[in-house]
C-alpha cells in the first residue's frame, strides 16, 4: 500500500431508483475500505442528492427490459406502471434489508464520500443550492476531472 489512499471517482448521471444504487454502493464500499471516494452527480443523477426528490426516485418500466415489471414500450403509457414497478423494487430492497436512497446518501456522507453537484445541471434544471442536501460541492466538469485525474478507479454509472 502506498502512503496515499486509493481514490474512486464516479459519475452518477441517471436518476432512476435502480441506477442510483450502484454509485452509492460502490462509493460506500470504497470509503469503508479506507479509500477516498467522490461522486459527480450530473443531469438526472442530481436527483439522488435532491432533498425533495431523492426519497421518491422511481423505476422506469419502459426501456428497462430487466425491470421488475415487464412493460412493452407501447403500454408504458398506462397509468400506474411506474408506480407499480417502483413499489415492487422498494419491496425487494426492504425485504433484503437494503437501505433506501436517503439513508444510503447519509451513510456515504458519514464515511466522508465527497459529493459534487454539477453546476450546469443546476442551471439547466433550475436547481438551487438549497434544494440539495447539505455538504455538496457545486462543481463544473474541470473541477471534477481535476479530482478524477488523481483517482485510481473512475466509473460512469
Amino acid at each position: 500500500m502506498s502512503d496515499r489512499p486509493r481514490r474512486l471517482a464516479l459519475v452518477a448521471s441517471k436518476g432512476t431508483l435502480d441506477q442510483a444504487y450502484p454509485a452509492l454502493i460502490l462509493a460506500t464500499t470504497a470509503a469503508s475500505m479506507g479509500w477516498e471516494a467522490g461522486i459527480y452527480f450530473t443531469f438526472h443523477g442530481l436527483d439522488i442528492i435532491h432533498k425533495k426528490r431523492h426519497a421518491a426516485l422511481k423505476i422506469a418500466p419502459v426501456g428497462n427490459p430487466a425491470g421488475p415489471i415487464q412493460v412493452p414500450t407501447l403500454l408504458g403509457v398506462i397509468p400506474g406502471a411506474t408506480t407499480a414497478a417502483t413499489g415492487m423494487m422498494k419491496r425487494w430492497m426492504g425485504r433484503a434489508n437494503m437501505p433506501g436512497i436517503p439513508e444510503f446518501v447519509e451513510m456515504a456522507q458519514g464515511l466522508g464520500v465527497r459529493f459534487f453537484a454539477c453546476s450546469t445541471t443546476m442551471g439547466v434544471m433550475g436547481v438551487e443550492e438549497d434544494d440539495l442536501i447539505p455538504g455538496c460541492d457545486i462543481a463544473g466538469a474541470a473541477a471534477f476531472l481535476d479530482y478524477a485525474a488523481e483517482a485510481d478507479v473512475q466509473l460512469f454509472t
Binding site: L26, T28, T29, A31, S32, N97, P99
Partner: peptide, 14 residues
C-alpha cells in the same frame, strides 16, 4: 447475517 453487499463491508469498516 441477512445483509447484502455493501452492508457487511460497511459495518466491518466502521
Amino acid at each position: 447475517s441477512g445483509l447484502l453487499c455493501p452492508l457487511p463491508v460497511y459495518k466491518a469498516g466502521i
